[in-house]
Design a protein around this nucleic acid. Structure first.
Lengths: 168, 168
DNA sequence: CCAAACTTTCAATTTCAATTGAAAAATAAA
DNA sequence: TTTATTTTTCAATTGAAATTGAAAGTTTGG
């Protein structure tokens, strides 16, 4: 397998996986493309490489920036915007964990709180079962939340400590 | 909010969340319904409660069984199949982690192995960048794999030790 | 073996999200 | 200010996945 084939396959694979992470296929394909590009790319480059429309490219690049996975790069004397992926994969993983927590876990915890607040003492079998499930889920959710927070904080500390080393 | 409303909302919420877990909306709604039902339900019960077709119910219940989240229950002298959700939420969480690992992480690791095996020594900037990314991702993926395995095993041990207690 | 009870399959349809592309808006140079 | 370049928006379209429902398949009691 040569570079061109491997690249194609990598983009394909990463795109499929993206579905599972909460990012859509195209978004992950753009991410993959930028990850393996040594240099920053323009919207046009991305359109051509992936054969997708300008609108699609624009929206998904913006989403990638919202996720903190891609950054805008401005070049001296050029008007076009260039895009560059965050290359530190640990940072990518942390970033994804952070965003997913924000988008999935946090809303779930809120929804559960709302639901469990609004039920009086249950005599009925059904109500008892319902309240039990709510409590149990809340327990798991809060534990997960704590664990993720710890991981994210650890990773952030590590990042800053690495950064400090550069200036020491 | 009364029981009926809370139930509706819980099913709704769980369904929305399901999208993020790799299970589809209906599948998670059925799961939610079974989670809060003190007793096992039939296909008909599920159809009526959620206003969905027989075919849809059947397929999604089967998927839930594939995920290990729901079990078939046979009742004395009854011909119908009843369905019951796994109620231990920690077990549910473990099960989901296990399945997602199988469906997402494992294929990714395989794909990466295939890709990184098939590249000779790279002189080109592009090829170097590509190989770097592959290596880094593999590192993260393998770490994640190890962590998940540890968690799953820990949970399984805990489960069996709990079970043993019952018979002691 | 037959018929009733129940489950599974699958082609056709519906639904919803992703995508397009052209027009509008923004930005910067002349 | 005008013009040229680039980005953003969004109504219309496309495409993929979910859903239906009726027909086919399976199982069990008589």
């Amino acid at each position: 397998m040569n570079y061109v084939e491997a690249k194609k396959e990598f983009i394909q694979t990463w795109g499929t996986l993206g579905n599972h992470w909460g990012t859509n296929r195209t978004m992950s394909q753009i991410h993959a493309l930028l990850l393996i590009s040594p240099d920053a790319l323009t919207t046009e480059d991305i359109m051509n490489e992936l054969s997708i429309s300008r609108g699609n490219t624009n929206m998904n690049v913006r989403d990638l920036m919202d996720w903190g996975l891609v950054h805008k790069v401005l070049k001296q004397g050029e008007r076009k915007e260039y895009f560059q992926a965050e290359k530190d994969i640990w940072k990518v993983a942390t970033q994804v964990a952070k965003e997913r927590k924000k988008r999935e876990l946090d809303p779930m915890i809120k929804a559960l709180e709302k639901l469990s607040a609004l039920e009086g003492p249950g005599k009925d079998k059904k109500i008892k079962a319902f309240k039990n499930v709510l409590e149990d889920i809340q327990e798991v959710a809060k534990n997960t939340d704590k664990t993720l927070n710890t991981m994210i904080k650890a990773e952030e500390n590590w990042f800053w400590s690495q950064l400090l080393k550069v200036f020491k």
